[in-house]
């Protein structure tokens, strides 16, 4: 019995890796541009469908398809920020919520119109069935493990990018004070757009992982957004390592909830989020 719980905790941590992947991009946009993109989850699902088309229609292997999609997502993120979001950034919260909300509804319904409402899963070429046996009857899936390791590596890399590079310093400068940045000659709109391009890259990577691990359909976006949001808030707004921790907490909570009763998985995640939020509204690792 104790073994079953230990197993659930380990599975929960691994699930947290996927959730952290969803959340990293949201954490960046919250930390840098200080807005929550309501369409974040829908963008992940959108890229997943792109991957679906590339792999099933055109027969491209998933890894290659992801490699194709990542630069596209960078450009997509850049243009989204430059052409749409930048225009409403100065207008206050309501405008940015409404625009990304409208985008969310458009993406969901466009996907439904194009692909239908069916639930999908992409074949990963064998990795999804491989497991490692541990003592005590615990099985670790290769795919979840790989995703977890990748999520940690991505947080590490983005942390370096933001805090150890010149580009990172420029991004943080604009995030500190847009008006000052403009006064001294930084191109803040361009820098924001580059940041959103980076968010796009994380969206594409998490889409690649999600599409082989979990089922998705055109309306899956909001649930991904909520999980990502919870991870970001739990971790502390703007902290990437915190976001990783937040993702793991939600993952463990869901996994343990599912152990009690399969129907409690989602609710357990939300309830633990609310409980931790009430105790530490500033998050675990506030900046």
């Amino acid at each position: 019995m104790a073994g079953a719980w230990a197993n659930q905790i380990i599975q929960g941590i691994l699930l947290g890796g996927l959730y952290a992947m969803f959340a990293i991009g949201l954490s960046l946009s919250v930390g840098i541009m200080r807005f929550v993109n309501i369409a974040h989850g829908d963008l992940i699902v959108l890229v997943s469908f792109l991957l679906l088309t590339l792999t099933t229609r055109l027969g491209v292997p998933l890894l290659v398809a992801t490699a194709i999609v990542v630069p596209v997502a960078f450009v997509g993120g850049y243009l989204l920020q430059r052409l749409l979001l930048q225009r409403v950034l100065g207008q206050g919260v309501l405008s940015i919520v409404l625009v990304t909300f409208g985008l969310s509804v458009i993406i969901q319904n466009a996907l439904q119109g194009i692909y239908g409402a069916d639930t999908r899963l992409i074949q990963g070429g064998g990795i999804e069935t491989e497991t490692i046996q541990l003592a005590g009857g615990i099985n670790i899936g290769m795919l979840p493990l790989a995703i977890f390791v990748f999520a940690v590596a991505l947080v590490f890399a983005l942390d370096l990018l933001l805090y150890r590079t010149r580009l990172g310093a420029r991004i943080r400068a604009v995030s500190d004070d847009v008006a000052s940045a403009n006064l001294v000659g930084l191109r803040s709109a361009h820098i924001y757009a580059v940041a959103m391009g980076i968010v796009g890259v994380t969206v594409a990577l998490s889409a690649g992982f999600m599409s082989v691990w979990t089922n998705f359909d055109p309306t899956s976006g909001p649930s991904r957004l909520l999980v990502a949001f919870e991870a970001v808030v739990l971790g502390g707004l703007g902290s990437l390592w915190g976001t990783l921790a937040g993702g793991i907490i939600v993952g463990i909570a869901q996994s343990l909830g599912a152990q009690v009763d399969a129907g409690w998985q989602l609710l357990a995640g939300h309830l633990v989020f609310l409980a931790v939020f009430l105790i530490r509204p500033q998050g675990l690792f506030p900046k």
Binding site: F35, V36, I38, V93, I96, V97, P222, V233, L237
Partner: peptide, 8 residues
């Protein structure tokens, strides 16, 4: 904006 998702 966090409020929006929080209410959700």
């Amino acid at each position: 904006a966090y409020l929006a998702v929080g209410t959700w």
